[in-house]
Every structure is written in structure tokens, then in C-alpha cells.
Nucleic acid binder design. Structure first.
Lengths: 226, 226, 226, 226
DNA sequence: GATGAATGAGTTTTCATTCAT
DNA sequence: AATGAATGAAAACTCATTCAT
């Protein structure tokens, strides 16, 4: 399995070293689930595998999660939160809604290149857990709205805009993760999405390229091919 | 379960009544699988259910499909082909690539309204079987290319365009099928997708509305709520 | 089914009453498998029968053995080890290699008379699991080698000697178990095997008869017919 | 799969070209069964595989054999008869019982070297079909008896002698087929068996080597290793 | 809280056999 | 005689979940 990019590694790990033991165990289990889901897909993953990966037993796993669906949901939420937290600094440095939207797109697309297995797992989990898209969608919605206020985005419906952004990015992630995408796929997708939101072609392309600088590694990843 | 729209019913049924027996059985099994997948989701569906739904035994099912993945793939391909066949007449009446792309989008989005269960099954199956998107993607690619030749579409990469079209439409279908979408969602999505492909906002909206007339029932369906 | 001779009963039972639970379950399953294999033949035995015979469920059985072949192998090894353990005292009392070889032959041949079903099961299992003959063969090889050192056995190849001993004894067991053998078949086979190893006819016969005394019940068993 | 030695190829084929059609089909099916059993083992072979290998359908197979056991038995008998027929000329040229016994041993052991898969199949089938050993045993018994009359063999029991001969040879075949036997294993086994029947060591060895000349290819096969 | 053995219902899959054509 | 599609009972194996320790 492709190693998780530094950007995400230890997503579920305690930030405060003095976390309560129960919480530490819980996070270790989520971390293990992420690893197992990434390598086998979540449908094929078993509770015993997750427990074993965490160095624990199924009993302990069930002490923390009542059912398999629960740990899947926990994984989805953990991923969504971590993604936001890790990018919040960079996000705050951008004041234009269009740039924020673009950064979000590039971010996820970049991760698909860095960790294809992880990306496929994410798509898997997202499809199974509505909570995931709701969480992520809330941020996207805020950024889109900001762009509308700033007159850079012009849309008929926010829901449609979200479907455009999330749908295109997820499909783009799949193409990249499966090795079907040409170089600079992330930038191409991002620029198209911006155009779809009403940004003229040239600025759209420029913004897509500009925010790439805020993504660790930039566009480089896409150039290496697979 | 929502009944299949007349448009799709009997997708897998023999056109020639004197089809070979083996072929008739095969189509009956695919038809049964569509029904079972629609009502339970394909992951939850069992081979026994499919066989029973077709009025046959698991043995017969395995006589035709070596594994569960095989019948899922057969279903995916059958759906993709039927969708194309059923809309080929209307499609042929449109000479502009942009209109053809728009019609494809509206078509799938309209079906999500007509048969939410069927749409969710389709999304499920599409995620599991690359064959589906490959089949559909070939048509979309041809239409996009035509639009490019006609200077109405301007893109950097065909693959990215496909991801935009298919990703947005699939996400839109999900919103519609889950009842999360406002009225006229299909048209909104379609117009945005066209903009993403480089069509200016106003023509995009006009095209989206225009091709709706080619979809049975038009935009009306979206207004009825769920 | 012929009851197991006292000599072998409970082969797989714990010697120490305070064995770990997992180990106790494992031995109970092996014991059950021996019983089922003996009454139905191992090819016809099902995992459910074995589990039921042990008063457990298939899940538990699979918890301990990954596949049917695994429990067959475990049975084979358990039998081979038990046979050696149970006869080790008597074996140690014999210093001549030829006597030890003879005793081994008589032992298995005697058991075929005592428990025909058990013997047929053993032959079945031996054919399916190389581990059995490897385990038993190691002892035979040591005894043959000892006989060679003592200049009572003279052979060209150890492997050939093992094939002679094991092949003849197994075929003899089959004849006896199927009720096709005349009285004193075990002694006749044993004497011939010794001759094959280079022991002159008269001593061979004497040794075969002598070691019979070390087998519980002696040659008597063969006279009762079936 | 190792090809069948020329010696056995087409064992089941019609000798008279004008055989009735039913008989020709039957022999073709037996031939196909031999091939399938050799490559997969008879327990793992399916009726559909056998039919397909013969270029026919299961229906036809069942027209000729009422059950799987029946075709297994037919295969066993066909093999036994062919083996005898093919060696009858050479056998008739030997007047001493010991030589005939030796030739029979060498023959089967040589085949194990030439066609390991075929040999393992034979052992498989022999274990399942008593008729096989009965057929072969009748010839061995006659040769042993001849040797007794000629005062070259001295045994206590014919049944025991048969167990010695057949058991040792079958075990030897297994060793050879599995690649566990050293060079000249066939000769070593044969010589030992003769000793077991009362032939002194030196003549036993000489006879074993002599009859090897009557086997196509002679001892050469054993030297090549595997 | 953790353990880990046991559970057992549920699934996929296999294949000998039948039978209408 | 041959076909080959259909059968269906049975088997192996899985895994989420429970619970006594």
C-alpha cells in the first residue's frame, strides 16, 4: 500500500499526549481501520483484521464501536476533520472564495496521486457514509457562498454547485488513483470546476495553478506519471 | 421500490421472441438481478435472492455467471447499452456535440427522479464495475469531441472533461435520488457542466432547457418533489 | 464402528488437566475428527459432522483449522505421535534394530485387526497427508539404520527399505481390515519384510513371533477371524 | 501433465477400427477420464470436465456410465487390462516365476518415473476400486505360485506375499512419482521384494537388473533424476 | 477495560444427476 | 444417441457479534 502522505499520517493520533486512555485506544483503532480499509477496501475488511492491525482483540474493538458501520462512520468523520484541520492554516490565508474552492479541489486530487489506495478507500467510505459528504460539503458550501458574495461565482443553485464540485473531484480522484489520468489532471479538473461555477476560463486556469503552490509538493506529483 | 420508468422496463428482455433458450435465461437472470439490486443494494443482495427472483435456482445462476462480480458486470453493461439504445433515436436528431452531452446528462438525471432506487443501484454498480463508466464514457467522449470540433467546447483534456461530466451527473443523481435536490436540479447541473466545458453561461442554460424536451416528461418530474 | 482399542483411546486427550482452553478445544476437535473419519471415511466426512461430534459449531472448527486438509493433517500427526508414544516403553526395551522394526510392523497390523474402521481411516489419511508417513518414517528409518549398524540389516537404499516396510504393512493392514487376510497374517507380513531387509528366513520368523509378545493381545487377535 | 509413455498411450483406444459406435464413444470417454484424473486427481475431477475433455456433453457421459463411481471403476479395469496386455508378450518370454514377478514390479515402477501424474492417478484409483488390485493381484498370484513350484520362492502365505509385492511397489511408485526416490529406486525395491519372497540377495539383485532390460527404456529413466 | 474463544446464521460456490428436446 | 440447460442439495468457509473470564 502506498504510504500515507506526511500530510495525513497519524491523522487519528492524539494531539495532546495526556489524552485519556480510552480515547487513545479509540484513536488507535480508527487508525488501524484506515490502514485496513486502504489495503483491502472496507467491504472486504473484517473486524478481526482491524483489531489485529491495532494489536488488540475484537472484544476491545466492540468495546469502542457497537458495529462495523460505526467504525466506518468514525473513520469517515476522522478523515473529513483531519483534512480540514490540516488545511485550515492555508485556507485562512486565502480570502477569495474561488481560491478556497480551488484549494480544496487540488488538495483532494493531490492526495489521490500521493496515496491511491487511501483515495480509493476514501471514495468507498464516502459512498457508504453520508456524514462524510455532509461534513466536507459544509466547508465547500461556505467557500462557494463567499465566492458568490464576492461576485466571482455565479450559480443558480448551491446544491448543484456542490454536486459539481464534489462529483467532479471524486471522479477525478478515482481516475488519478487508478492511474488513468494524464499529468496535471488535478489542475485540469480544478479549472473546469471553476469555469462551471462561472469563473472565466483564463482566471480559472490561473487560480487552479496558483493554489497548487499551497499544496505540499505542488503540481509536481502529477508530472511523474505513474 | 419505485417502478422502473417505461423507458427502461424490460431492458434485458429479448427483442426477438425466438432467442436461444440459454440467451433467454441469461437475460431473465440479468433482469432479476436489476430488480434485486434496486431493492436491496448490490452489496446486500445474495445470489440466492437473484436466482429466486428469476424463478430459478442458484445452480442455474452459476451456470451463467461464474461469480457475483460477473453478474454485477453484466448488469452494468446491460444498463449502459440499454440507456444508449433507447436514446439513440433522440440523440441522432441532435447534431451539436454540446446538445448531445446535455441530453445525456439530463437523461440520467431525469431517471434518478423517476426511479430513485434504480439510480442508487446504478451508482452502486458503476462504482463497482469499471466496465460501466468505460461503456458510457465512450459515448460521452465522442459527443465531447464533436463539440470540440464544432468549437463550442474548449477543454484541456478529454479525460478531465469526462470526469467532470460523469462525476457531476452521478453526484447529481445521488442528490436527486436521495430527495436532497431542489426542483430543476437536473437542468442546473447540466448547465453548469456545459459551462465547465467552456460554453458561455447563457447558451449553456438554453441548451440544458432545450434538450429537456427530448427527455420523456421534461423537467416536470423534478417539480413533483418526492 | 469398531471401538478403538484401549491402546489408542483418547489419543488426543490432554495429559495435564489444566491445559489451556484453546488447546483443550483443539484436542477435542481432533478426537471428534478421528471418530467421524473412522465411521464415514475422511472424504465423506463433513466439517459440520466433525464440529457436531465435538459438540461445537463449524465456526469453532474453522477457528482452529483453516481448512479441511488442515484437520486431516492434524489427525494424521496426532495418530502418528500417539502410536509412537504409546509404544515407546516397549520399544525402548528392544535393543536390536530388527526387533524394533518388527515390533512397529506388528503393532500397526495388530491394530488393523482390533479396529478395522480405524485402520482404514488411517490408510485414508496417510494417503492424503504426507506428514503422516514422514513422521512414522522417521522412526522406521532410525530403527532400520540401527539394524544396519548391528549388521543384521543389509540394504542398498534407506528410502527403498522404508517403502518396503511401510508399503507392505499398509497393504497388510488393508487386507486385515477388510477381512481378506488369513490367520497370523501380521506375523507372515512382518517376517517377509524382515527377509526383504536381509534377515535370513528363520531368524526373521522368530523375531516376528517374539515381538508379537510385546503387542497387547499377541497373535491371538488374528485367529478369531472377523 | 507428464505425457503418457508410448507404452500406455491410447490404452482405451479401439484395436479394431470397425468397433461399434457406442463402444468407440465409451472408450473415448474412458480415455478422457484417464487424462482428467491424471491432471486433477479423481476426487477433484468433475463429470463435466470428463465430458468436455472427450468433446462431449454430460448427457452422453451419463448415457454410458450411470454414476461417477462407474467410470472410475471402468478406468481402473481398463488400466489393469492394458497393463497386462501390453506386457503379456514380454511376460510370456520369461519362464521363471521370480522373473515374472520382478518384471511386473519394474514395469509399474518404471511407469511411475515416466508419468508421475499417471502413477499418482493409478494409486488414487486403486485405493478407491478394489477391482483393480484384484485384477492385478490375480496375475501376481499366478507368478508367485509358479515361483513356489519352481522352488525359487518360499512363502508362508500367498496373501501375505501379494501384500508385500503390491504394497511395496505402490509405495515405491508414490516415492518415485513424488520425486522423493534416489536413482535406481525401482531396482532396489524389486530386489528387496524378491528377497522378501525368499530369493537370496545376490540372485535377487541380478534378476531385478535383468528384467529391467525387458522394460522399455530400462533403468535409464531412474538415472536422469527429476 | 481488555481478552479471545466461541458462536451460528448466512453466503458463495460446486457438481452429480436429470430430462425435455 | 446425443445434447446441454437446469437442478438443488450439500459443502466449505466467513465473520459480525457475544460473553465468560
Amino acid at each position: 500500500m502506498t504510504p500515507l502522505p506526511r500530510f495525513l499520517a497519524g491523522a487519528a493520533e492524539p494531539e495532546r499526549p495526556r489524552l485519556r486512555k480510552r480515547e487513545r485506544t479509540r484513536l488507535a483503532l480508527i487508525d488501524a481501520a484506515v490502514r485496513v480499509f486502504s489495503s483491502r477496501g472496507f467491504a472486504a475488511a473484517t473486524m478481526q483484521e482491524i483489531a489485529a492491525e491495532a494489536g488488540m482483540t475484537t472484544g476491545t474493538l466492540y468495546n469502542h464501536f457497537d458495529a462495523k458501520a460505526d467504525i466506518v462512520a468514525a473513520v469517515a468523520i476522522a478523515i473529513a476533520q483531519t483534512m480540514q484541520e490540516r488545511s485550515s492554516a492555508r485556507r485562512d490565508s486565502l480570502s477569495r472564495g474561488v481560491e478556497r474552492v480551488a484549494m480544496g479541489c487540488q488538495h483532494y486530487l493531490w492526495l489521490a496521486k500521493q496515496s491511491p489506495d487511501w483515495a480509493l478507500m476514501l471514495l468507498d467510505v464516502a459512498a457508504a457514509t453520508p456524514a462524510f459528504l455532509e461534513t466536507v460539503g459544509a466547508y465547500v458550501r461556505a467557500d462557494v457562498r463567499r465566492g458568490v458574495r464576492q461576485k466571482e461565482i455565479e450559480i443558480e443553485s448551491e446544491t448543484a454547485a456542490l454536486d459539481l464540485v464534489c462529483g467532479s473531484v471524486m471522479q477525478g480522484m478515482r481516475s488519478i488513483a487508478l492511474g488513468l489520468a494524464p499529468p496535471r489532471h488535478g489542475t485540469a479538473i480544478t479549472a473546469m470546476v471553476l469555469r462551471g461555477l462561472g469563473v472565466p476560463a483564463e482566471p480559472a486556469r490561473k487560480i487552479a495553478r496558483k493554489v497548487l503552490a499551497t499544496v505540499p509538493g505542488g503540481d509536481a506529483g502529477y508530472r511523474r506519471g505513474r
